[in-house]
Design a binder for these strands. Structure first.
Lengths: 225, 225
DNA sequence: CATGCGCTCGACCGATCGGTCGGGGCTCAG
DNA sequence: CTGAGCCCCGACCGATCGGTCGAGCGCATG
């Protein structure tokens, strides 16, 4: 076929390359919107080769999702284990989540799909061990921030209210933003992932959770504008 | 001959039924995840009949999306045109958005997909008039809340900060919540769409935007409710 | 040399995809 | 009656889907 000796150094990292490509494609068009042929071609392999690394499309998708969640969990764990008040750790938790999405841009979209699209996978995929692993990681992440919020409430640093409701807000405000793509850039009038936008997003969310959106009517400092 | 004033809707509600079914299915599994056969069967029609009401899958999807956006725009318009301060109107805007999603449950998921998945449609679909209509409606909605935020800032009712960033937060916190499905119910430990959950969500978001999440450190007045 | 193994491949499978086509039943105007 | 419009349908199209199969490759062992 090819007279030239193919195979630069591809033999080693094929699995990782497949995961990278699949992550990007699944993030863009979803589980049902991407074909294995397309993934294989983008990697530079034949479609059959994918089946030597993964058991099928559903398992590949779950491995991709698990890898993303694992990366995020690692970053968030650092924030949870850091020093300081619960509110300070919550700030770091938010910033770590933002950093995770800014570092690996497709993550946010992939995660949003994974979180919201429970019915996209064929039913038999729920029996795969990777499915349970994804759910476990998700539960650990959610339990971590839940404990942080409760601790903050007990310490009087966080106002009363339902921690699950706060978690929903946190996830929505962070994940949606970095998954919003073209529309988000239209709203912002600036690229989503530039260093400046990322910094601005962190500042906005930290400020939101500290003081809300309303101007503080009481004897709070206000800017002269 | 002469334009016969037929009434296309009463003669057969097929078109509306198709739209209802398609909205629900597209919301659950996305554009690529739903086949026309499945839609037709769920409606109780043959697949060919869909083509007598719509030009194809992409156009059907865009009509569904446009219908959802139209419903939402109607509700939000009422909030924008209401009486009161900008902050009061913003509260009503948020509550109207929540009501829209609570009333038509698939809306949130469909919208989240539509907003985030720009690459899911075949490229030629962007030339369809429905595509432009969807974008126009979206722009009007975004422009409306943008003006509201700026007005609130000028009136000193809303703190300084980037209105687009605030919009991203608003959308994420509301749309994600009602699109979060199974995971959201796991987080909340309660159904997403019960009257109580909807009321709680409104209260949480209004409170968030008014005072943040942190306990107010200063001598703020506590509302004696 | 031979053997086995990790990895890749093209050919092929049945099923399903979006979309087309010609025609049949229905109602209403002439 | 006869046509004209709808609305609907089953049959069919080429393309693509996820997945299987057997063989071929280079390479490390004997």
């Amino acid at each position: 076929m090819s007279p030239v000796a193919r195979m630069p150094e591809s033999s080693g990292g094929s699995r990782e390359k497949i995961l990278d490509v699949a992550e990007s494609l699944f993030a863009r068009r979803g589980f049902a919107g991407v074909g294995l042929r397309e993934i294989a071609q983008a990697v530079g392999l034949g479609k059959s080769s994918l089946f030597h690394h993964f058991d099928g499309k559903a398992q590949l998708y779950l491995v991709v999702l698990g890898r993303v969640l694992g990366r995020i969990e690692g970053r968030l764990g650092g924030a949870l284990a850091s020093e300081g008040t619960a509110m300070q750790r919550l700030d770091r938790w938010i910033e770590a989540l933002i950093d995770a999405f800014a570092e690996t841009p497709p993550s946010a979209r992939l995660l949003l799909r994974g979180l919201v699209e429970d019915e996209q996978l064929p039913p038999e995929a729920e029996a795969l061990p990777e499915f349970a692993a994804v759910n476990d990681t998700l539960d650990r992440i959610l339990a971590g921030v839940y404990r942080l919020l409760v601790e903050g409430q007990r310490a009087g640093e966080i106002r009363t209210g339902s921690p699950p409701q706060m978690i929903q807000t946190l996830i929505g405000a962070v994940v949606y933003h970095f998954a919003s793509g073209e529309l988000g850039e239209r709203v912002l009038g600036a690229p989503l992932l530039s260093a400046e936008s990322v910094r601005e997003r962190k500042a906005e969310l930290v400020r939101l959770f500290h003081t809300g959106i309303a101007a503080c009517p009481g004897p709070r400092q206000e800017d002269p504008s």
